[in-house]
Write a protein that binds this DNA or RNA. Structure first.
Lengths: 228, 228, 228, 228
DNA sequence: CATGAATGAGCATTCATTCAT
DNA sequence: GATGAATGAATGCTCATTCAT
């Protein structure tokens, strides 16, 4: 990666002293990206600082320079995956859609995001095994409130008002249920495939699951009857 | 746990107690129990053979004597937690209940089991991070077919026939959805608590979730309308 | 090996109580044979008691029962290979041959024995690395005087008297030289093969070496001149 | 040995001495020297990485840093002893001597080198027990062709041409014989001493053997007769 | 900032040996 | 005697982290 190229070792005029041969920001980003990948595939304990540095193409010392410790790097990696999903969530604009369609998009989004970000799931799993210790430590993470839950709440209310959603569900439980039907499929894809003897990571199974998830969630939300 | 059971010192007065109750089966069980706990709380890579042996109250070498390697012990630990849930599943007798009630019990069971067995979730998570590698290796695990899915299928069919369940869902997707709404709540309890700023592991939150889960699932299963 | 067969567990009359289900002598022999092989191929430190017992088809405990320790077994193994060569040496009857022919046979014997007993060389090498520690410990080994050296001495004297051997060599130095030209070829066969890029363990190389060895030794022994 | 050399503390007054002289080359050399000694006296399997590092006065991890594994260190140790003898051999200049004298020097050299380098013998022995496995692996070792054999061949040819050596011996066999009469004396010094009840490692025995070795070899090389 | 060297604590695993049955 | 269980002291090797340049 960030190779040693970058020419000009001793340029006659070192105008900008702050920016030397390497780009600190790029190095940092490379480390975080490598960390996310390594922590996701090996877990915190299984991940190796050496390999993260090597994968990022930087010296191991930089890890300690920038992040103090393996733990520190893990924290930033965690923040980075959270930041990314929050950013994606921001882009959802549902207020103009009618409740049913908006809800479908929310369900679809939570499915699609997980489908494309297995590292998010892996990091979450490790974080939960350690009782969310890092989450509690990070102030930044605390502040990254999810707009998703608010959109969901707004959409839910609109739908209830419009009579297309049943009023029994609170937003948090609904969120967990909607996320859960997608999350479990991805988080446990391998064990489920083994148990059912069916390749649930195949393209077909994925698309089929996506349809089911939306249908299942929407149906659960439907009001009891269209009482006359 | 630490096999302190083992009643009956045989002779009422044993002047010099044998240093250790020589009981291979107990030692093995103690190791497995300790392994389940350690692997669940630290993950495979984070778990320490030393600590497992210490927790089991046996010599570390016995791990290798009985299980060949840390990996071997992990495999048996995994099998043991699977065996336990399969055993519990066997005890469910739903054929005499009417479909709706049977389905409620299935949903409740999948919630209650996870509530009481956080180590099951933790081991599953680690296993999925490694792409179910151990699951694939173990023949015993392959043979531990879940009766749950069959019960679910039978119940689903009965309910569809009786007109109380919609016919659109296949059993596998339904299973994943039902399991998912419970699983995600427990597997991600800590991160969810942090995000929502709400103690989701509190007794009240648990009971409330349980009610929601059943209601959500049952509702999703309801047929489209009671068309006249 | 020494299988569990051996029938008749509870014969009505256990006349000979000393000989039970197994044959202690056979077990001991099997252990020694296995030990010779294992120690020869792995060295003392590299040899594994477990594997020796397994190869002998007996329980590991027997090693300690019969030989006290790994070291004890090694000692007996060493004695056994010495005993074997001494026994073979005993069978040489050279007094009736004329000195030259007798000497040729001595040289040939020392070559042939080594050719057929690589384990002897291997054990000697390990023993010498540890400064012959075991040799010094064993009284039995001390007593196993080699008849070879005496035969050599007698033959040498006869030849000198007959004018066919030069008188300058003492028997011990001669013995070492004769043994050395064969021993080095076998003991260092692999490194020599590597250095010379030639398979010195091939049948042809062996026969050629045998001829050379005899010729070289006999020639060295020839008196200075047939001075008139 | 323990790299205490390293003169020059540069600045005359260094208030706080650096904890350890940071000198990779010295550390490496110290490790190799310690490895040669340890492997020679204990064999590969008996040698302890801990003790090698301790003897070299460096951290154990450096073994793995520089040599990857115990095996890797062993290989380098082996290469180092080979390199040393090759270097010594290079210094022999025999072309100007007459064949007989040159041959005497060759024989004497092969005796003297072994006399002074018991570790060479010990490492060779272990290497041969493992069928020269390491020798085959090392490219560097393959390339360290011995000039000795070529000198021997040249000297032999010159002597044959001059009529002072018999023409029957090929250089390889001759090399093995010459090396063998010295090697065996040293390699098996302890067992020979035990068998003969004579301290063959004593100064006197050594000198006497040296004389014998030269005489024996030269005599073996003499042509059949000074035929008139 | 960058780099290789160095450290120390720890980790899975091995092994000769002993114990209990 | 025979067997599996058990032990404790290692043993080769790893890893996060720090140092020196």
């Amino acid at each position: 990666m960030t190779a040693t190229s970058s020419t000009s070792p001793k340029s006659p005029a070192r105008t900008v002293a702050t920016k030397r041969e390497r780009d600190p920001v790029a190095a940092k980003q490379a480390l975080i990206a490598a960390a996310v990948a390594e922590f996701a595939s090996k877990g915190f304990a299984g991940a190796r600082v050496d390999e993260i540095a090597a994968a990022a193409g930087v010296n191991k010392q930089l890890v300690y320079h920038y992040f103090d410790s393996k733990q520190g790097l893990y924290l930033v990696a965690l923040e980075s995956v959270y930041a990314e999903i929050r950013e994606k969530e921001q882009k959802l604009t549902l207020n103009e859609l009618e409740p049913l369609e908006a809800m479908k998009q929310l369900v679809a989004f939570s499915f699609d995001y997980l489908a494309e970000h297995p590292e998010f799931i892996a990091l979450l799993a490790d974080e939960n095994r350690s009782h969310g210790a890092n989450l509690h430590e990070s102030e930044r993470l605390q502040k990254m409130h999810s707009p998703f839950i608010e959109m969901l709440e707004a959409t839910l209310e609109r739908g209830v008002a419009a009579g297309v959603f049943r009023p029994d569900f609170d937003a948090i439980n609904l969120y967990i249920s909607i996320a859960g039907i997608s999350y479990f499929f991805f988080s446990n894809n391998h064990t489920l495939s083994a148990i059912f003897g069916k390749a649930l990571d195949a393209r077909g199974a994925l698309l089929q699951r996506r349809r089911h998830v939306i249908e299942f969630a929407i149906n659960a939300l439907r009001p009891d009857k269209d009482v006359a």
